[in-house]
């Protein structure tokens, strides 16, 4: 037992609300963005770190995305794929390495500040406001914007027509694929400079997965760089301009999606032949 503020295993819902609380590991806020011209559009360079004081999960891992590209992170289970993405979003304590976005060093700033700097992040789970309508979800995505965001909402509806149909429905009542569309749509509402997707196809059927991939390609075509963590490596590599294979928190292979798809070593070690 550490601290004194744990709940001693209490699960009494008549006094404590178990739903919706923060599960995130707190990262101290503070610091500010520093100009750092040159280099790729978004890069996490030589990132080393883990959660809190725990052991390092990433070891000098580098991930980068250029303008107009789709970059994917693939790798076996437990390779630190999601962790690498969270590190770029500021949800990890980095002991070494830097994160730079559009000519600015953002290593020291909190995830919330990174949203304001132009990062759109779609978490793997709990990525929608389930009790609120689709439209309210999009409005909350645009919370930091004080200007008129109706055109952005129209763009999102154009991209995901089914959401327009269901805009008055609580997002929690939608199907798995539609929820992911809401989640991506919510992140697009800030008009981000780069979109980070953490396993957007987790738990959806193959047909829905193909459709989601199509949408993501469509998003990227509008000029928005996309960085994506994906479990379904083959499909992901097919659409990727650049791909990173991570093994045990370190870069194992890097190249274009097509090149890795045909790399015999990558195929053998983890695409299953």
């Amino acid at each position: 037992m550490t601290g004194g503020y744990d709940d001693r295993g209490n699960r009494d819902v008549s006094i404590a609300n178990p739903a919706g609380g923060s599960a995130a590991h707190p990262v101290p806020a503070g610091g500010r963005a520093q100009p750092a011209p040159g280099g790729p559009f978004l890069i996490g360079e030589a990132m080393t770190g883990g959660y809190g004081r725990g052991a390092d999960i990433l070891h000098a891992c580098t991930i980068a995305v250029e303008r107009g590209e789709i970059a994917v992170i693939v790798g076996p289970n437990g390779a630190g794929k999601s962790t690498a993405m969270k590190a770029m979003f500021g949800m990890l304590d980095l002991r070494a390495g830097t994160v730079r976005l559009d000519g600015e060093d953002i290593t020291a700033i909190s995830p919330q500040a990174r949203v304001r700097e132009g990062m759109g992040f779609v978490p793997q789970t709990q990525n929608i406001f389930a009790s609120m309508t689709v439209e309210e979800n999009l409005e909350m995505g645009a919370f930091v914007r004080r200007d008129d965001f109706r055109d952005t909402m129209a763009q999102v509806y154009d991209l995901f027509p089914v959401l327009k149909e269901k805009r008055r429905q609580p997002a929690g009542e939608l199907s798995g694929g539609q929820r992911q569309q809401v989640a991506v749509g919510r992140a697009l509402m800030t008009r981000p400079k780069v979109l980070l997707l953490d396993e957007p196809t987790a738990g959806v059927s193959p047909i829905v997965m193909d459709e989601l991939f199509d949408r993501i390609v469509e998003v990227a075509r509008t000029g928005l760089p996309v960085l994506m963590v994906e479990q379904n490596a083959r499909q992901a590599l097919e659409i990727a301009d650049k791909a990173y294979v991570l093994v045990q928190g370190a870069n194992a292979h890097t190249g274009t999606g097509r090149a890795l798809l045909h790399d015999p070593q990558v195929r053998r070690s983890f695409l299953g032949g």
Binding site: N10, R11, D12, V13, S14, I15, P18
Partner: peptide, 8 residues
């Protein structure tokens, strides 16, 4: 399904 001990 969940505890309601406090109010009880």
């Amino acid at each position: 399904r969940s505890d309601y001990l406090a109010i009880a």
